[in-house]
Amino acid sequence: MNTNEYLKIEHVCKTFGKGESRSEVLRDISLEVAKGEYLAIIGHSGCGKSTLLNIVAGLTEASSGYVFLEGREVHQPGPDRAVVFQNHSLLPWLTVYDNVKLAVDKVFGDKKTKAERHDWTLRNLELTHMTHAMKKRPGEISGGMKQRVGIARALAMSPKVLLLDEPFGALDALTRAHLQEEVMKIHAELGNTVLMITHDVDEAVLLSDRIVMMTNGPAAQIGEIHDVRLPRPRNRLELLGDSNYIAARGAVLEFLHRKSHYVEAA
């Protein structure tokens, strides 16, 4: 198997509705993600990038086209493609620990002993620095902490691909920067393959190896793909003057503010 084809999206189209109210959201999206790669998908809101993520997750069915993971077609959701939802989606009646444990028990119920599952739950809460609040309910912790737990829950599934759906979109700038650092550390440590939806240019450049830029909907397509040639580990302050950083940022901004419309018109 070619390592470039770890996750492969092939000619995916998505149309919602029928007849008069038919609307084409995605048109012919093809994309390959290598193992361990951090890929960001950026585009204006409403361009269908979340729909694309949901198709990869299996939560939405593609109208045509295929998604392959390690050479096998996927069309149902599963813990091998864990999702960190934009609004965290923690179960409010379970504690932080139990939210993560639910995923661990379900995914590793027959592979790990009870003690191992407990340790694995704690290990993932440690990764996201949430052990101090593990007995609290989601309603008792801040938005940033909830998203950490959401990340811990997704990581605890040991997914082949981690899907992040605008994970920091609802957070204030400082909390967001903090969580971006954490995600970079975790990615460096575990080498996850990540697909992240974002509308934040700096976030995309800072975190990812490649940035996929989507044209405006309806019928969004992949406009450009930019390789971010920045060595890791990355430091947001040191990058500020880096020419590669400036180039990547410029390329994305240029696309979002100028070209996304032209491609649509073409």
Binding site: G58, L59, P77, P79, F85, L91, K106
Partner: peptide
């Protein structure tokens, strides 16, 4: 729908969905 999505990603079966969600 968020909770249903969580259940789908975790592949909870009917009984598990009933009691946990």
């Amino acid at each position: 729908q968020d909770y249903r999505n969580v259940a789908r990603v975790l592949r909870l079966n009917g009984g598990e969905f009933f009691t946990t969600i």
